[in-house]
Write a protein that binds this DNA or RNA. Structure first.
Length: 322
DNA sequence: GTACGGCCTCTGTC
DNA sequence: AGACAGAGGCCGT
């Protein structure tokens, strides 16, 4: 199959939803470390795997355009709904930005150049296993690792211009006796034991349905269950709660957020290291500041922080060239 | 309850 | 070029 860049080339294969840029910015959300499965396949077009199919997404004129490969006949109301649920488009972002900004001048300042940053509603298995891989790691390497994970353990879906696309692996694909060794061979390091161990623990314990059921239990309980899995601590559990389990008040606290709290908010919460109590205190601080969707606001701040770092690196590169 | 070292490997930086 | 620190942490002590 051939990659489809834009609706104008083959309009019959594309559909669209109303979606202004203030509500969603693909270029800010998809590469910023919430998900590791989307690539900018050509300028402004994002190709990735969602719900067991390969999609290309594109924003034009206040609409979100999409095409699904291989399932052309199936594209319709169901794919509209899947996409709306993935991006949680029923949540009005502009109103939230206004409220967060009114409560917090620092948010207003940071968010000014980063509209349309929203939290995705991801598959719990994919989110859980992916974020186990994020410890002591960078987005660039995580992305490459997840890519290899899918190629090695995931079902092949199709080729686009000779490039293969794979589904995210099933839990059972990762419970084999040799899974850990294979993951190590793929460069997962000490995370290999955690990924295979969590796959096994979920399979033999609460099950996929039990994992999905965490969407219906309180945040504190979901967090407690997740933290019992190998390789899952406070930070990873909060990421999964926020991005897959409908806990909008979960605030993942990592070294970046901790630094922001100290430098920008001038707070010394939780002492010298990121102890469980520090996680709790910092999370409570942001929930008090931003309210019940504090995790969403944190995603905006994180995105702004990420780009600030990239911009600094970029200006240094330009300095070197001149 | 907190503090610390170790862990795999890679990337960015000097 | 080659070393080196630090990376969206977690676990055992």
């Amino acid at each position: 199959m051939k990659l489809r860049d834009t609706p104008s080339a083959s309009p019959a294969l594309w559909r669209s939803l109303p979606c202004p840029a203030a509500e969603l910015r693909l270029d800010l959300v998809l590469p910023s470390g919430q998900t590791f499965r989307w690539r900018e396949s050509s300028p402004g077009s994002w190709t990735g795997v969602l719900g067991g199919h390969v999609w290309t997404l594109r924003q034009e004129r206040d609409r979100l355009w999409y095409t699904v490969y291989g399932g052309e006949a199936a594209a319709g109301a169901d794919t509209d709904r899947l996409l709306r649920e993935y991006f949680q488009l029923d949540v009005g972002l502009q109103e939230l930005y206004r409220a967060w900004g009114a409560a917090d001048p620092l948010f207003r300042e940071a968010a000014k150049d980063f509209p349309g940053v929203r939290v995705l509603r991801q598959d719990p298995v994919e989110c859980l296993l992916s974020f186990i891989c994020t410890s002591n790691n960078h987005i660039s390497r995580i992305t490459a690792m997840i890519d290899r994970l899918c190629q090695a353990f995931g079902r092949r879906l199709c080729h686009l211009d000779a490039q293969p696309f794979h589904a995210f692996p099933s839990l059972t694909a990762l419970t084999g006796a040799d899974a850990e060794a294979r993951l190590r061979a793929l460069g997962f390091g000490y995370r290999a034991k955690f990924v295979s161990g969590t796959a096994r623990a979920v399979t033999e314990g609460l099950g996929i349905e039990g994992l999905h059921h965490l969407r219906a239990v309180p945040y504190a309980e979901a967090r407690r269950v997740l933290c019992a899995l190998p390789g899952v601590g406070s930070k990873v559990a909060d990421c999964v709660c926020l991005m897959a389990l409908d806990k909008a008040d979960a605030v993942p606290v990592d070294t970046h957020v901790w630094r922001i709290v100290r430098q920008r908010y001038g707070l010394e919460l939780g002492g010298r290291s990121l102890t469980p109590r520090a996680h709790q205190e910092i999370g409570d601080f942001f929930r008090g500041l931003w309210g019940p969707r504090a995790g969403w606001a944190q995603a905006v701040l994180f995105c702004a922080d990420l780009h600030k770092g990239r911009d600094l690196a970029g200006s240094r590169d330009r300095d070197k060239e001149s």
